[in-house]
Design a protein around this nucleic acid. Sequence first.
DNA 1: TCTATATCACCC
DNA 2: AAACGGGTGATATAGA
Length: 603
Amino acid sequence: MDFEFAAPDGGPPEPLCMVARRIEDGRTLRLRREELRALQTAPFATDADVLFVAFYASAEAGCFLALGWPTPINVLDLFAEFRNTTNGLPTPCGAGLLGALAYYGMDGVAAAEKASMRTLALRGGEYTDAEQTALLDYCQSDVTALEKLFLRMRDEIDLPRALLRGRYMVAAARIEANGVPIDLPLFERIRDQWHAIQDRLIERIDADYGVFEGRTFKASRWAAWLTKAGIPWPRLPSGALALDDDTFREMARAYPAVAPIRELRVSLSQMRLSDLAVGADGRNRCLLSAFRSKTGRNQPSNTRFIFGPAVWLRGLILADPGWAVAYVDWSQQEFGIAAALSNDTAMMAAYESGDPYMTFAKQAGAAPVDATKTTHGPIRELYKSCVLAVQYGMGAESLAERIGQPPVVARDLLRRHRETYRRFWDWSDAAVMYAMLRGRLCTAFGWTVHVGPDVNPRMLANFPMQANGAEMLRLACIFATERGIRVCAPVHDAILIEAPAWQIEDAVRDTQRAMADASAIVLGGFRLRTEAKVFEWPDRYADERGRRMWDTVQAVLAELRPAGTCGAGAHGSTVRPDGSCCTGAHPTCSAGAHPVQSYICLL
DNA sequence: TCTATATCACCC
DNA sequence: AAACGGGTGATATAGA
């Protein structure tokens, strides 16, 4: 079956029409918007003995939810299956319905017609009779195409595992429908003042340099300033100035006059807002794009999704009055997955010690048995960097660069990892060889990457960790949503949930149980730990990494609208139930408490 | 003026 | 040849 629907920015989908066909006898249902709205439930069976076939089922499930219909039990999503079948291989016409048909040498609807119909559906609003019929006919042609694709793919599908992926698509639809609560007035204010904030930052610092033209940094002007200041500057192989932050950091060490411009560039780079999809109800909703990445991760748009841009913007996440949000993430997820799947007892012991990095240092003989994060912080950091480097297949040179140590130190760290976790390395090397020889590699539940002739071996080495991590997250989302937890967003190794404040502790506990269950299922009984951070209204979501930038922006905002004039009133919606318009915890109005000059955050 | 490319930065 | 996995996306600049 297939829906056409309008997709307003940040809002739930609005179903426009639906076509469903029973494959055994070809019986076809065509329903228009009003007919759909009149139904309490789907006009066909969706229970346990029915297979529901769709393409990109989170969209169909989203329409079910918008209509208040119970969602289908057995979902076969041919998008997820097509991605899984072709993951890693070229799909010349993409991974959409038409692309999938083309891949199998079949034709569907003309691409031009699909595009024009999509535009018509996205438009939303009212439709003439002719437009409605056109939409229905188009919808029906997609159903015909879907049926062809199903008949072509059915024999290659691993049904039980496909149904697990379909079940996740329904969970994803629930999450997409719920969304992330956003401080709408503050979001609008920051968005409206975006350029003014940038201008203010540039104005103060660039006065001494003159390297900006408006809001753009000009390489030519920077070159001129460097010449005048007598500073030699590294260049890229192309001959252009190297303008990455690493270069700026290095150069600022030798030439302190470079530091302010570096700070300014860092701040501005974190101000690439942002097309956050926030609905009129203050919820950030966007497509999670399940199964989009090679490892099966979700891949939502970075600009539309609140967890996409720089972390300081997460301060916009604010639970509704009386509610709380919680960010629950797995501790050292990939390390734990590597330990369990390789069955490396030393590695599993390190994971279960609660501090894998410190324990690794001890196991490698670099720290005494009673060492802690407090007593041996720098050693722990080195071993932590080594663990992360191994997960990505980093070499000694890059690791040396990263930890600011000579290559011998990095080589020694990597050697100790190989010696301490021999079993893990045997397993990892074997996985890469297996993948090369068999041409594929897959997770516990069958998410597969197909391997071509010039594959990156580091991708193959990382795949079991990252892709099983994605598998685990999908399972946890399934459990959490099916147990009635309100999930706002999945974030690769974390889940954001919300609950009324008085229930948040229970909700966190249930979520942690779901995540622990999911890890045990993927890892054959090995349970991964989770950590939770709770933010109860009126406290907003806070991430330490973004605190300084958040404060900077709030201070600039306060300058742009002097303290004492409460911004909230103008928007009318931040008035609290108790009649007050703001609290100390609400930076919209509390910015005046900051020393105004602090917003120039020089090193 | 528009587009393509290179480079860079952000996330986990 | 180099060697940091999976991504999205903005921006500056070169070139059509």
